[in-house]
Amino acid sequence: PKDEAKKKVKEAIKRGDEETAKRIAKKYNLDWDDAKREADEER
């Protein structure tokens, strides 16, 4: 599900692992900028 994928993307971003985050986002066709902004807001 997309929500689960987005959570994984945000967790990867918070760990500083943007490569993984981008790969997950691409795989699930998520909006990378959107997920990154959300992760930054939660930090």
Rank of each mutant, 00 (worst) to 15 (best):
P1W: 14
P1G: 14
P1Y: 11
P1E: 15
P1N: 14
K2V: 14
K2M: 14
K2H: 12
K2W: 13
K2D: 11
D3E: 13
D3P: 04
D3T: 10
D3S: 12
D3C: 13
E4L: 12
E4T: 09
E4M: 12
E4W: 14
E4V: 09
A5W: 14
A5C: 06
A5H: 08
A5F: 09
A5D: 02
K6A: 08
K6S: 06
K6T: 06
K6V: 11
K6G: 04
K7Y: 07
K7C: 14
K7P: 01
K8H: 10
K8W: 12
K8M: 13
K8E: 10
K8S: 08
K8V: 08
K10M: 14
K10F: 12
K10H: 10
K10Q: 12
K10G: 04
E11I: 04
E11R: 04
A12G: 01
A12S: 04
A12R: 01
A12T: 02
I13N: 01
I13G: 00
I13T: 01
I13D: 01
K14F: 12
K14W: 15
K14I: 13
K14S: 09
R15L: 09
G16S: 02
G16C: 12
G16R: 03
D17C: 09
D17R: 02
D17Q: 04
D17W: 06
D17G: 00
D17T: 00
E18W: 15
E18Q: 07
E18C: 15
E18N: 09
E19H: 06
E19S: 07
E19M: 08
T20N: 07
T20S: 08
T20W: 09
A21M: 00
A21V: 00
A21H: 00
A21S: 05
K22F: 02
K22I: 08
K22N: 03
K22R: 14
R23A: 14
R23C: 14
R23I: 11
R23P: 00
R23Y: 03
I24E: 03
I24T: 02
I24M: 08
A25M: 02
A25N: 01
A25S: 04
A25Y: 00
A25I: 03
K26H: 08
K26T: 08
K26M: 08
K26Q: 12
K27N: 07
K27V: 06
K27G: 02
K27Q: 14
Y28Q: 12
Y28I: 15
Y28R: 15
Y28P: 15
Y28H: 15
N29G: 14
N29I: 02
N29H: 11
L30A: 03
L30E: 05
L30I: 15
D31L: 02
D31W: 00
W32N: 01
W32V: 04
W32K: 00
W32M: 05
D33Y: 06
D33K: 05
D34H: 06
D34L: 10
D34V: 11
K36D: 03
K36T: 07
K36R: 08
K36E: 05
K36N: 06
R37D: 07
R37W: 08
R37L: 07
R37M: 10
R37S: 09
E38C: 12
E38R: 03
E38I: 05
E38Q: 07
A39N: 04
A39G: 04
A39C: 08
A39E: 06
A39M: 09
D40K: 07
D40R: 08
D40T: 11
D40G: 08
D40L: 14
E41L: 13
E41N: 10
E42I: 06
E42Q: 08
E42A: 07
E42D: 10
R43L: 14
R43T: 13
